[in-house]
Design a protein around this nucleic acid. Structure first.
Lengths: 220, 220
DNA sequence: CAGAATCTTGTACGAGCATACAAAAATCTT
DNA sequence: AAGATTTTTGTATGCTCGTACAAGATTCTG
């Protein structure tokens, strides 16, 4: 409160460095192997530093999950706002949920450990639920008008679950690549929506086919 | 080797009791909270007993996962062999993957913790892969003849991933019930296969509609 | 029933971990 | 530059958990 010129800056820097280090450790060793000492070593600092900038390890962990989710969301948001058609929006959502360099077994298994923890720890659960809701509402906004309310709910849930299930398989068996996963999700979408509706996705209403145009954006 | 009359019997009994106790602890506390002491207490034995009958905790854990998977598989196998039509076989597979009393948040989160561990520990991975392969080959046997090889692969993978994804959502958000989950999987199946093919599932070839008959069984 | 084999108990040891903290180093202030 | 403040270090403490083990209880055997 008294000083803001330097103190807050260094403090914020260290906190971010530690969270970023925690993120790297997390992606390599999972939630389980994410020990205080390892985080500090990864950040190139002394083991005691964590207690100086954070109340405890849980605070770092929590910040890390938020950091991770923010990274993913920002990517999807950027792609969404640049998408000209609803179909492009759909591609943005699906591809954004399989980040190019991140569809890795190690990352999938780290992600699984967060989901396992979310089953027990209500704070993690809330973070994941936020994430899930965002995915589903993004999907629903693209599908809007194609189904009645109940089917809309169902379709977005099916696609969201399909995406999660593919991540789970990646963690367990690692028998699927990024492009394959994306193809499978689109196969699922394709079979859920009728051909006529799929055309409406590819070419926004009021425009000729073959001529892409900026679809109205409903949600970010 | 020398004595088999009593020794092996008591030994097997204790091992099974401990594994069953481990299973109960696992379902309640997850892989993380599954401590040696808790397992022994749950089994009504002394904390040291575990080291007498097992080489270490990992052996109990491993046996527990096998025990769990066997329970699930036996249920599916029993339903499968009693199924008169391919459609009934499909119902057996899908419903067997959402056991009546077991589609619980606690159980889902315990299951997630195994998947997370499988990403790191190759032994768990193999167990889960076995499980996944069985599910997919069961699905594929029902769908056989409806798709070409590539699409068959895709369809079984999509449905299997959808099932896993619904379990994951159960762990994280607990916003879905057993019947709802089964309905969603069938919605996915319905949209993947054509109406004509779906009829072929419901009524085996060579039989009149409305008259259920025993379909030939392809796989167990 | 005595002695041996088997089974069970309770405890003790050590490893790994989160956290607290005193001392050292660095930085800022005047 | 001297003193005050902030930042960093290294270590110590206490806790949880897996495992080993000696001693006690039970069952088997002759």
């Amino acid at each position: 409160m008294a000083t803001q010129g330097k103190r807050t800056r260094i403090e914020d820097i260290r906190r971010i460095e530690l969270i970023a280090a925690a993120h790297r450790v997390f992606l390599e060793h999972g939630l389980q192997g994410m020990t205080s000492a390892r985080i500090c070593r990864e950040a190139g600092m002394s083991p005691g530093i964590l207690a100086y900038y954070f109340k405890g390890k849980d605070e770092v962990l929590f910040g890390m999950v938020r950091y991770n989710n923010r990274l993913l969301m920002e990517d999807v948001i950027a792609r969404l706002s640049a998408a000209p058609t609803n179909w492009a929006r759909l591609e943005a959502i699906v591809e954004g949920n399989f980040p190019s360099q991140a569809f890795t077994r190690a990352i999938a298994s780290a992600w699984m450990s967060v989901c396992a923890e979310a089953g027990v720890n209500e704070q993690y659960a809330r973070l994941q639920q936020l994430f899930h809701r965002r995915l589903r509402s993004n999907l629903a906004s693209v599908f809007d008008g194609m189904f009645d309310a109940a089917r809309l709910h169902e379709a977005s849930l099916i696609i969201a679950a399909l995406i999660d299930g593919l991540w789970l398989r990646k963690a367990v068996a690692d028998d699927i690549g990024r492009d394959e996963a994306i193809t499978l999700v689109f196969r699922g979408i394709h079979s859920l929506v009728s051909d006529k509706e799929e055309q409406r996705l590819r070419y926004p209403p009021g425009r000729e086919p073959k001529q892409a145009a900026a679809g109205r954006r409903r949600r970010l």
